[in-house]
Design a protein around this nucleic acid. Structure first.
Lengths: 119, 119
DNA sequence: TCATTATTTCCAGAACTTTCGAAATGTTAG
DNA sequence: CTAACATTTCGAAAGTTCTGGAAATAATGA
């Protein structure tokens, strides 16, 4: 992942509506939701929603697929994965990684592997 | 972590200079670097650097400590951890978390637990 | 105290982002 | 074909962010 891709992805997530949107789709899973359903769940006007969906899709964080009249959007998990890897790469210079960086991508769902952090 | 905190943290990271800054400090470890050293390594004018350090610090991603005339900045690992947890929370509705979400926070440094992703 | 170095604050202009109304496009059913 | 629905594009106004010059603050050593 290049720096500019990471900046684009982070910028896409750095907006309240889009973050809510993305997290909804992360929870929903690979099947995704139709644009209209998303708008209904989050109470966003269609044109505004479309703008935000486009932003997230162009950033590589969502995948869109058409099904009849509906367009389903789903989280692109691999992209989220890469972004997290990018942020945490070479943590603490590779030294003592075991107690430096979080086993965290999943720390909220898998609690048994909770992290020990410096600072 | 509240949504607005996550948005603030993501916005802080969504800028090329600040992302480079943050990643440098993530690599450096808990000892951190003096502002001037950071500026020298990345080639950023002092006032601009100060602006970006403030943004990251206010977002909770950096911790500052004074030592003589120098101010050392270090990554706040716990905050990064929380942010990642926030993004990935309830992935795929809790179902089959094991093959859904990445064990990725550390995927670049700890390769043995590589993820199996949907999509 | 004074000079020096380290860092931050203030300011203003340029560039970018978000929002929403209105219009356009695309898909299906009758 | 036409109506109805789903979604996107366009355009303009309001707000926010980034940058760098100049000045301010802060700590140290001579």
């Amino acid at each position: 992942m290049k720096t500019t891709d990471a900046v684009t992805a982070l910028a896409a997530l750095a907006q309240e509506t889009r973050l809510a949107l993305f997290r909804l789709l992360v929870e929903t899973g690979p099947a995704g939701l139709a644009a209209g359903e998303i708008g209904a769940q989050l109470g966003i006007p269609a044109n505004t929603l479309s703008f935000h969906l486009k932003t997230l899709t162009q950033a590589g964080l969502l995948a869109a697929r058409q099904e009849g009249r509906f367009i389903y959007y789903a989280a692109h998990y691999a992209a989220m994965d890469e972004l997290i890897a990018f942020l945490t790469r070479n943590c603490c210079n590779g030294a003592s990684v075991e107690n430096c960086l979080p086993k965290t991508a999943v720390s909220s769902t898998i609690t048994r592997r909770r992290a020990r952090l410096p600072a």
